[in-house]
Design a protein around this nucleic acid. Structure first.
Lengths: 233, 233
DNA sequence: CGCGTCCTTGAACCGCGTCAAGCCAGGTGG
DNA sequence: CCACCTGGCTTGACGCGGTTCAAGGACGCG
């Protein structure tokens, strides 16, 4: 179930948050953690399950969602290598969200007690996680404003760019591999509107579609579309 | 500019977050902090100003907002006694939001360096603030789902209840004193729709309006209206 | 009294969600 | 190999909800 200690240490050190710990705590965490692999579409966290601890993503991309009235899903965000899942539930008793793998994922789980002890003895760890929260909160509130003020066309452009930053951090090829449903749930619109707008974008040569996979061929134009929203916080 | 030490200590201790510090740090903070008073409508934090530190609300209610495209304001949340302003900017270089007093406010400011040192020497303080972030994040994401899934009528009910929890924590009289504009900006709709829906609520005896001040006379009915959204995270 | 600000109400327009049908690719079984 | 089914994607038509525009009322202030 758990890898050799040497390898585990290496893994913990690769997590930007966890490496804020002191050396002896990194070793400790490497022994106490629990690493698992997930296949695409596999469930990582079930909605409303009791909070058991935190999940640190070593590798892969996952969607975080929450199910609303009449089973309408809202994809809250995507998260990937270096990200955390379950921190929202921290301080509450149930995970307010569910998480599902979008790609192959390697994820490390650390239980409540262990992580709590680590916090108390590693101020830098707590501080690092606090900074993570701070960033998440800014993102979340930016999203509130976007949802409230953008029209559908702008939301689609915004969503495409967002997904692209997750899938192609270093602008590899600007291809994104995500289902229309997930994309629509992320943007907060229905799949039909999404389809319509993607078709328009295609006509305008902003994107290309090959067997349902979207390629952003004119990222700049998409960016310009949402520019007015970007720098006004 | 600063009160007697004794009184200051007392103030710091009254802040639920700050009292997580060790005794000597509480004294230290009492000396280094900077307390100010604000009148209604007075600005506390300007949007896009550089981040100088954190504001802890000793007393009063403030609105946190951010200005979007063509000066459309989004009121992100209200905050009151015991709350924090500016924590969103922490880790960034500019405050992503602005803050304005709604009532008379007493607010204590602690600069970046001081609070950072406090974090490093008081794990419990960092942890307490992290929990505060965690809660804020849950609220923020609940709001995302509400904005995406509620219709206007439900949004108004939700907004009224929210404002009431801020103004009347202990169900004093269920009267809320906030302008239509602020309420509309908080809910994410325009003032006209707000007016219409308030008029409807009035007809249905859910609220009463006396010289523009709203009283929630049937809180239960309002709660039932948004019940389906409440327990589904 | 006149003016400005905030709130309310009405009417018209239109963006977006919903419903319905068609398309396409992949999988299964005869 | 073809027939059929299924699930995801696309496109069109329609109607409702909500935004916008415009005008009028209530109230405070000089």
């Amino acid at each position: 179930m758990r890898n050799s200690v040497a390898c585990s240490v290496c893994e913990v050190k690769e997590c930007p948050i966890l490496q804020s710990c002191s050396d002896n705590w990194i070793e400790k965490l490497s022994e106490l953690k629990h690493t698992s692999h997930y296949k695409p579409d596999q469930n990582i966290v079930h909605e409303n399950n009791p909070v058991m601890g935190l999940y640190f993503i070593y590798d892969g991309i996952a969607k975080i969602f929450s199910t609303g009235i009449n089973n309408k899903t809202q994809v809250v965000r995507l998260t990937k290598t270096g990200g955390i899942i379950g921190h929202r539930g921290f301080g509450g008793d149930k995970y307010p969200i569910g998480a599902t793998a979008l790609t192959e994922c390697t994820i490390c789980f650390i239980d409540n007690k262990t992580i709590f002890d680590a916090f108390m003895e590693n101020p830098k760890l707590t501080f690092a996680l606090m900074m993570y929260y701070s960033k998440e909160l800014r993102n979340s509130e930016a999203k509130i404003k976007n949802l409230a003020q953008m029209n559908v066309r702008e939301k689609v452009a915004d969503g495409l760019i967002y997904v692209n930053t997750i899938f192609n951090e270093h602008n590899e090829n600007n291809q994104i591999n995500i289902s229309r449903k997930d994309l629509a749930d992320l943007i907060g619109i229905n799949t039909e509107q999404l389809s319509r707008n993607l078709s328009e974008f295609k006509k305008e040569n902003l994107i290309e579609i090959n067997q349902n996979q979207i390629e952003l061929t004119n990222l700049e134009a998409l960016n310009n579309m949402i520019l007015p929203f970007q720098y006004i916080y």
